[in-house]
Design a protein around this nucleic acid. Structure first.
Lengths: 265, 265
DNA sequence: GAAATCAATTAGTACGTACATATACGGATA
DNA sequence: TATCCGTATATGTACGTACTAATTGATTTC
């Protein structure tokens, strides 16, 4: 890998000047590049709707290979921040929320992190339970396995109206990860990863419409019977071990779930 | 590119034997490889839960580079058919539907094709309309623009219980694409692409819970007020031109919407 | 003036190499 | 027996090169 130099190039379209430097030994290089690009988009260096510098220019400016730039761009394309057209260039896309509502259902693991970072999970209840009957089935474990059951409301970071009602079941072996947490400002599985050092490899997510239950409705400020989405998530560590099971109830009128599907080639 | 030869290798795990050959000039090579692998998974050559031959073995057996195999595997990983672990191998995943219900909300353009191919859209109504008021807003166009409005029920290919109620608005300039179609066995946008030669670059998809309307409920065999999901899709051609607008109403009890989020690295 | 043609530009595809890193397995050791 | 430690093996990362194909815009031609 060649040195990363501060490069100044004033092309016709956008200023590529950047003092970015690869870190020593953290994330893979292409992820660092992706974060760097995303940061500069957020900062306004690369305007929404405009074209990014070409892959070759970026590669030269950042001191990495074009392949690495392409991998980074690929990540951001998956997230919808960028779109590319052959013969034209790579366009900076608006991160939707056209109707002003916050995105709340993730489409990638990293997006789950981001959503959680923008919200607060206020834990209102916490108890050790033993999985029996229906719960054991939902958790896909033998009856009798112990889980820490916590419930609470998730608010936007500015503490406006509640977003969702949440219930979480955590494997007793890793439950200590959140023993001191009363307000979670990161994803619960993030605490678990930090505590165990083990990475969550896979999250299975299920979405279905439900009618809001009276008790829950009251807690998030709706009426019973109101429409809602229930999102269920199962978190698996290495070896497909279920570490966390959680579901949340999202009032239908407070969010929208938008995805953009783009052509692969 | 080296020649693709029929290779016979009986490794310990799985038989790689394959008479696959790259076509002359259709899809990119890595997509062909992806289709080939997917076909052999469906056929049972590679059992669900087992490990695929290694990337190097596949590359050699198919006469392509390891990078190309990796690209193909990457596509199938995105679709959830495969999962990979460093130091272990690439695992063939079950294509969910754990509860027997069919997947119905796509996560990629190609998946939309596949879903449409497994179902039939029986068109029951068809009329030219002029976009006014709310419709013009939904379509994001000036009032007065003409669209072909078609409605109908989508059934599984075997004509079991109805899946969904569908309404589609097609830009009058491309409406001729489906003028002879009474039962669509492919995606509507597929007809449009075929007719115009122009590719749909982007599809925006929105999901929200709704209560079923009496009229619609009757047509798909539910009761009014039943829970459902409404999926709205906007189809854009090149230059962000809206070519098709459609929504469908999916009864909550007949399907589930499951996604798997995997770690990026 | 309009249409066809050509050249430059840009992302996409495909190949190659080398090394990094996580995992599993077998053997040596306590 | 249980633990530790290499070794082999698999995917992951990063680099390189070369060519392909879609698009744009300028130029030529009718």
């Amino acid at each position: 890998m060649s040195d990363a130099i501060a490069v100044e190039m004033t092309s016709g379209k956008q200023d590529i000047k950047s003092d970015w430097k690869p870190e020593i030994a953290t994330a893979p290089l292409y992820m660092q590049v992706a974060h760097h690009l995303e940061a500069r988009i957020s900062k306004g260096d690369f305007a929404v709707g405009s074209l990014l510098p070409t892959e070759n220019e970026l590669a030269e400016a950042l001191g990495v290979s074009r392949q690495t730039v392409r991998q980074a761009i690929g990540l951001l394309r998956n997230k919808g921040r960028l779109s590319a057209r052959k013969g034209v260039g790579t366009r900076v896309e608006a991160i939707e929320a056209t109707n002003g509502s916050t995105r709340f259902i993730a489409q990638s693991r990293s997006e789950l992190f981001e959503i959680a970072a923008e919200t607060e999970f206020v834990i209102g209840y916490r108890e050790m339970v033993s999985a029996q009957g229906r719960l054991a089935v939902d958790l896909g474990c033998r009856p009798g396995r112990k889980f820490l059951h916590i419930t609470g409301v998730r608010y936007p970071a500015n503490r406006g109206r509640a977003f969702s009602w949440n219930e979480v079941y955590i494997d007793s072996r890793v439950a200590a990860a959140i023993k001191d947490v009363t307000v979670a400002r990161r994803a619960i599985f993030h605490y678990i990863e930090e505590f165990t050092g083990e990475k969550i490899h896979e999250i299975q997510q299920d979405v279905r419409p439900v009618a809001m239950d009276e008790d829950i409705a009251e807690k998030v400020g709706c009426k019973g019977g109101d429409l809602a989405l229930m999102v269920t998530r199962r978190y698996y560590g290495s070896g497909r071990r279920l570490l966390e099971y959680a579901f949340q109830i999202l009032p239908a009128d407070r969010f929208s779930y938008t995805t953009t599907l783009r052509a692969e080639n």
